[in-house]
Nucleic acid binder design. Structure first.
Lengths: 244, 244
DNA sequence: ACACTTCTGCGTACGTTGTACTCGAGCGTA
DNA sequence: TACGCTCGAGTACAACGTACGCAGAAGTGT
């Protein structure tokens, strides 16, 4: 019955290119680890093939023995980061609590790696860790008489909301920060860059509701609380679709 | 009283750099239009300063007289594309129907410009057209006794869901398409690239629910219908937070 | 009519990026 | 010993964003 490779190790998108390959000073894992470290320390834009190689003390082109393109490196570090998602081993029986916790865990991981939300949004979630997360969510919904297709929809809704939320959350946080110059004394933040334009917008009188929003809303909202609130609303909506 | 400029024209993020400046063969509008055309025709990666200049028959560096960085060009085309969002002039009185229509309009625009969802997700939505959209959404919720902050949350929830959904929608569609080689005869699509890996994953036995999902779910789902369904769920959840 | 200032267009050039190509060295097997 | 792998790495190239500086045109003051 077409004996497939044993279950132990799944090689993310890479049918082995090295058949025996016991030697090899470089490995995909090392490359991924180095790239991940760089991304966390200096942002995903600092991740270049040359930089990874320098970090590993190897030649730039050597990396291509283990990785087809740079994009594959990004695939690797995205899934590696997703692997840090903190979730229990199995579902608790309370699907709503489980999915709530999962969403919070997803957000936490994406805040810990601010480049992650953007990077993950642009590629299929098929890495082992991404799959494990999906598997957990499906397990949380299992046994409730939901068709597989509907369970998938419930999870997709949640994922869309979470990645969408966190993406704007980190983007806004980065936007508030000054453009990252060497220890400048605090001058020149987002206010200076945007206030004149914003003022012009408000004074145009064309956006009265938006003007009220700017004037009345808390300028530094607690985004964690906002996330929890919105997540509850989404789960409320989904609850109607889940029997029991 | 600080008389501000008249309401007529809002210049997106650009306090005038040219004082009289009636001349000028090049303009921000032309640059934005050319860039938008290129993005639509060949994807946002094909938008380069050299390419825009070529399209306009001008020198590359001339563009920088009207635009500070390439990123500003992207700001421009994002907002220009968002300007195509098809929505009525004012709210109808039925907030839920209005927000539903607005979400569908957002999705439609992002599907018409497949690069848009990704590009828009990474920057603050402060362009005139983005603001107009927010203004419409706020208007739809106005007069319902909602605090401004809560109205903003409702809208944020919706926006997060819509951009999140459409981002994975277009990404998945692109992933299904072969890597865009010159008219190849149809061979080598996503199946070839991913099936071996996917098979390995399924056979590993580590993702039983996911395996069931792959086996039971429709391989080519109607994403439009899925969007509508999920949107209704989200609106259901939000409805509980909106009085009346 | 003139000089002077200001703004526009643009050519050149630099540093960085991903990666195709190629070659030599080390190892397993015959 | 010889063959055929695979791995590591150097060189090279095309394409990118954009700093810099100059030429010329348009507007302004005299």
């Amino acid at each position: 019955m077409a004996a497939r490779p044993p279950a132990e190790e799944i090689i993310w998108m890479r049918p082995d290119r090295s058949r025996p390959a016991p030697r090899a000073a470089l490995s995909r894992e090392q490359i991924a680890a180095a790239a991940l470290a760089v991304a966390d320390a200096e942002g995903v834009d600092a991740v270049t093939m040359r930089r990874i190689a320098r970090e590993l003390g190897s030649g730039t082109m050597s990396l291509y023995r283990h990785v087809r393109t740079k994009d594959e490196v990004i695939d690797l570090i995205v899934d590696a980061a997703l692997g840090e998602e903190d979730r229990p081993a199995g579902p608790s029986g309370d699907w709503r609590a489980d999915l709530h916790r999962l969403a919070e865990a997803k957000r936490a991981v994406m805040l810990r790696h601010p480049w992650l939300a953007r990077a993950a949004a642009g590629r299929p979630a098929l890495g082992p860790n991404a799959l494990a997360s999906t598997e957990y969510a499906l397990a949380a919904l299992a046994g409730r008489g939901l068709a597989m297709e509907e369970a998938a929809r419930v999870i997709n809704t949640l994922n869309a909301f979470v990645t969408g939320f966190v993406q704007t959350e980190v983007e806004e946080a980065a936007w508030r920060r000054p453009p990252e110059e060497e220890g400048d004394g605090g001058g020149g933040d987002w206010r200076e860059r945007t206030l004149p334009y914003l003022q012009q917008v408000l004074d145009s009188g064309r956006f009265p509701h938006f003007t009220r929003l700017v004037n009345e809303a808390e300028p530094y909202p607690d985004t964690g609380e906002a996330f929890a609130w919105q997540l509850r609303r989404v789960l409320d909506g989904l609850a109607a679709a889940v029997p029991e």
